[in-house]
Design a protein around this nucleic acid. Structure first.
Length: 846
RNA sequence: GGGCGAUUGGCUCAGUGGUAGAGCGCUACCUUGACACGGUAGAGGUCACUGGUUCGAACCCAGUAUCGCCCA
């Protein structure tokens, strides 16, 4: 191909992305891999990015980290199984589709053939059938995924683009349904009607892993109940739940309330008799130490209700409004004041009612307190009793919890301390994993229910789809033994209306990507996978749920290594997020600095460590890439070529260089084996700069010749260039491939990772370092004299420790030529090496 | 409140028992036949604090403070 006149980074991405695609440089060779021993394959469980989201520079960093490992393993001769996935099912896609097209899903509507959404989203969202809605989801995600793929190619990910999966695809849905049926058959999945955390905006249940606490303003309202011996005062932040009150509770050791335990009190306004009970979860020093239990205000209420077997008086409905009818035992007349109101306005009205009745003591006391939210929601969660599907995860079973903690110990965590995130989460679980969502774009449960003569479903005996029929959509497919016209009619059947949570599908990414459902032979080979890369924020969700599924189905961990990336944070160390407005768009950065520069910066972020985004750092990576171009061009111009090998290296300084490089190769290899790409890059980079600044400067004059001494330098330059290009290839795929292409056959990314054994071991690296130190002394003299580095030196005396004198002598010719020294004297002396320089009278003229 | 991590020159970070390191930035100089998207040289730090172990501590131990993340 030859060396260009003026090498440039511009255009390298487009050129090599196209070439790699055309040459299938990164294709996984299934046949060869399956024929080879398992350890010759490296399989990666790539995180499927949320297709409806946007990628920021943090994604670029973490996916680059994985790609560096993939490229290293490939150069180590492994068959790298490196698929890409898109997480396109679930609520985020629904929201994007609603906003993008201006529609909303109304499952009661029927399908409209050839439906086209409004050209511009209107003010009101247009209702469409579920099938139409899902079609729009499919359409938009397909577009989004194409854009993502283009970005990833530009980032240089060495993904096998013939192996892309989607979490909504037929095979993903089939795998999710099949795994669910297995879980169900083994008793690991179950349905239960139970109080559930509920988002009133999205009108769906949410799981523990999707919760977050937010500090919100509230107020303690002090309310009197009528007790047997006078009023009993409680404090609550949610007076509107008074009609849902089923008991008062205090700590069993709280002396103030001993006389009340076992008695009843009457609620204000409603006059309902409720018992006073004792429970250890009551906090004596909070408020008055006695609290009302409502069904349900928070998770403590649920615990109390369950453990103390209290009655249920539910008042909050699915839409976040108070139910139209009073709960059992509550007078309808009073309750009618609140019925149908939102929680917010019910509270206002309730406070008025308490004021009127004289049961509100004093004024409400403003406080701020943590309130549970769905992580994607904007209104506080309520607790609503609904029928939901769960998968056991150890939250209610100590043995299972211990088994899952033990699984975590089978995984090698990078960095090691991320293991604690996993263990803390598992040990803190307080319930099973709720997997059903009352949404539309997701994997439906492969389940129907028979309807009795009254049209009521028989929940106890779900009709399951056969595995051979998966994937099924129970809303359009029909269970065995029924016909479509029996849908929804007494004596007929109904579909399970829910879809699975996104994590219930993405927790199967190793299975989906490896062909569990579609290519058992491949699956048996690549699973358990070698590497799960991901960020630390989803250890509790994606990582944990994947371990759960694999534990149940295979009795094994899904992967042997979990490599955890940190975040890219803004200069104030805040996490990037859209709402903070501090997101850096990747394409802009890639265009301005070049992919290799951005990847170089990414490689500088150690595994697990958050890293501030700093544009100034990008320039440094760019400088390195440019230097590689220029030194490559220069070295090849000096006569280095692919035909020269280490066996032609004879001069001590040349041998010394290559022996030093052997040490660098060993260090970089050890670091890469430990996933410490940052360290590997550091040692390669440190060597490279001294190679450019010192070694090349020292030998270039000699290398211009054509004798054996010249040949030695040319061979050392060729070997050093080849090795260094390969050391940098995982981090800087574009520039290394470019320089490689000037003088080598094939792709550098298919070349073997360098081995120290390919380099001469007998050289003395000190020849290079001592000669470089002497040269630095000469340079300093020139710099102090404000002379050009080309200034002639009349005479220079190197005073070196006796042991170093022969080293300087061994590099005498190179040193004299590089320093333009007319008379070079080397003498032994005390202390470190010094150089006395006498500059020639006038600067040299060219 | 619990857990984890961090604290080293202005900035970003290496450095896990033996005389404080790198890059960026800064200052001065050099336009050399690979590179001005360059090169050379230089200044700059009582390693957060307090105790302890040790011949010797940035590093080990105990505690404190500040910051960040996760969880309650």
């Amino acid at each position: 191909m030859g060396v260009p006149e003026k090498p440039t980074l511009d255009g390298l991405e487009a050129k090599w992305v196209a070439r790699w695609a055309a040459d299938d440089t990164y294709a996984f060779d299934r046949t060869a891999a399956l024929a080879a021993p398992r350890e010759q394959t490296w399989s990666i469980d790539t995180p499927p990015p949320t297709a409806s989201g946007s990628l920021h520079v943090g994604h670029v960093f973490s996916y680059t980290h994985t790609d560096i490992v993939a490229r290293y393993q490939r150069m180590r001769g492994k068959h790298v199984f490196y698929p890409m996935g898109w997480d396109d099912n679930g609520l985020p896609t629904e929201r994007r589709v609603q906003n993008y097209y201006g529609v909303r899903c109304d499952p009661s509507l029927s399908y409209e053939e050839g439906f086209e959404p409004p050209a511009k989203p209107g003010k009101d969202q247009q209702p469409v059938s579920r099938r139409n809605f899902v079609e729009l989801c499919e359409r938009l995600t397909a577009e989004d995924e194409l854009a993502f793929e283009q970005l990833w190619r530009r980032v240089g990910l060495s993904v096998d683009w013939s192996n892309v999966y989607r979490t909504i695809s037929d095979s993903s849905r089939a795998a999710a349904q099949r795994m669910f049926l297995h879980n169900l058959a083994r008793g690991e999945a179950y349905a239960q009607e139970a109080p559930t955390l509920w988002d009133v905006t999205f009108r769906t249940a949410v799981a523990q892993a999707e919760l977050e606490d937010r500090e919100r303003p509230g107020a303690y309202h002090r309310i009197s109940f009528a007790g047997p011996a006078g009023p009993v005062s409680i404090e609550t932040t949610r007076p509107e739940l008074l009609p849902a009150c089923v008991a008062l509770v205090a700590h069993p050791d709280d002396e103030r309330y001993q006389p009340l335990f076992g008695t009843t009190v009457r609620t204000p306004v409603f006059g309902v008799e409720v018992p006073v009970v004792a429970h250890r979860l009551a906090e004596p020093d909070k408020g008055s130490g006695i609290a009302m239990i409502c069904t349900f205000g928070d998770l403590n209420d649920v615990t109390w209700w369950r453990e103390l077997q209290l009655p249920t008086r539910a008042i909050v409905g699915w839409d976040g409004r108070l139910l139209p009818d009073a709960p059992p035992g509550v007078p309808a007349e009073q309750y009618a004041e609140l019925a149908g109101k939102t929680v917010f306005s019910a509270q206002q009205r309730m406070v008025e009612l308490l004021r009127e009745s004289g049961d509100l003591e004093g004024e409400p006391k403003a406080i701020t307190h943590p309130v549970k939210f769905y992580e994607k929601g904007e209104r506080p969660l309520e607790i609503v009793t609904t029928r939901q599907w769960y998968i056991r995860n150890g939250g209610r079973d100590a043995d299972l919890r211990d088994a899952l903690v033990a699984r975590g110990q089978e995984i090698q965590w990078v960095p090691e301390h991320m293991r604690y995130r996993y263990e803390n989460w598992v040990e803190g679980l307080n319930g099973d994993w709720l997997i059903s969502r009352q949404r539309f774009f997701g994997v439906p449960f492969p389940v129907w229910y028979a309807l009795d003569g009254e049209g009521e479903p028989d929940w106890s005996a779900p009709l399951l789809a056969p595995e051979s029929a998966l994937p099924v959509d129970p809303s359009s497919d029909v269970p065995a033994g029924y016909t479509e016209d029996q849908r929804g009619v007494p004596g007929g059947f109904m579909a399970d209306p829910d879809v699975m949570d996104t994590w219930a599908t993405s927790s199967l990414s190793p299975q989906v990507a490896s062909g569990w459902d579609t290519d058992p032979e491949l699956f048996a080979h690549v699973f358990p996978m070698d590497q799960r890369p991901q960020a630390h924020d989803i250890i509790r969700t994606w990582l944990f749920s994947t371990v759960v599924r694999s534990h149940f189905e295979f009795g094994a961990v899904p992967w042997t290594h979990a490599t955890i990336s940190g975040f890219v944070v803004d200069p104030d160390r805040k996490k990037m997020s859209k709402s903070k407005g501090n997101v850096v768009t990747p394409i802009d950065v890639l265009e301005r600095f070049g992919t290799d520069a951005v990847r170089w910066r990414a490689a500088g972020a150690r595994p697990g460590a958050d890293s501030p985004f700093d544009e100034a750092q990008m320039k440094v990576g760019r400088r390195l890439a440019i230097k590689l171009l220029n030194v490559g061009k220069f070295v090849l111009g000096l006569g280095a070529s692919a035909g020269l090998g280490a066996d032609q290296v004879s001069e001590p300084i040349d041998l010394g260089l290559l022996t030093a490089l052997a040490g660098v190769v060993d260090e970089a290899t050890a670091a890469m084996e430990a996933f410490n790409y940052t360290r590997a890059l550091e040692v390669a980079e440190a060597f490279f700069w001294s190679f450019c600044d010192d070694y090349v400067e020292l030998v270039k004059s000699r290398a211009y010749g054509s004798d054996d001494a010249a040949r030695s330098a040319q061979a050392a330059l060729a070997v050093a260039l080849s090795v260094q290009l390969r050391l940098f290839a995982p981090v800087l795929p574009f520039v290394t491939e470019e320089v490689w292409s000037w003088w080598q056959e094939g792709s550098v990314h298919r070349a073997p990772w360098p081995a120290a054994t390919d380099l001469p071991a007998g050289g003395d690296p000190a020849v290079v370092t001592v000669a470089a130190a002497a040269l630095a002394g000469v340079r300093k003299a020139k710099s102090d004299a404000k002379q050009s580095m080309r200034a002639d030196v009349e005479s220079a005396t190197v005073t070196a420790p006796a042991g170093q004198v022969p080293l300087v002598e061994a590099a005498r010719r190179d040193l004299a030529e590089a320093g333009r020294i007319a008379l070079l004297t080397v003498v032994p002396g005390e202390g470190p090496l010094t150089v006395d320089v006498v500059l020639a009278e006038a600067p040299a003229q060219a």
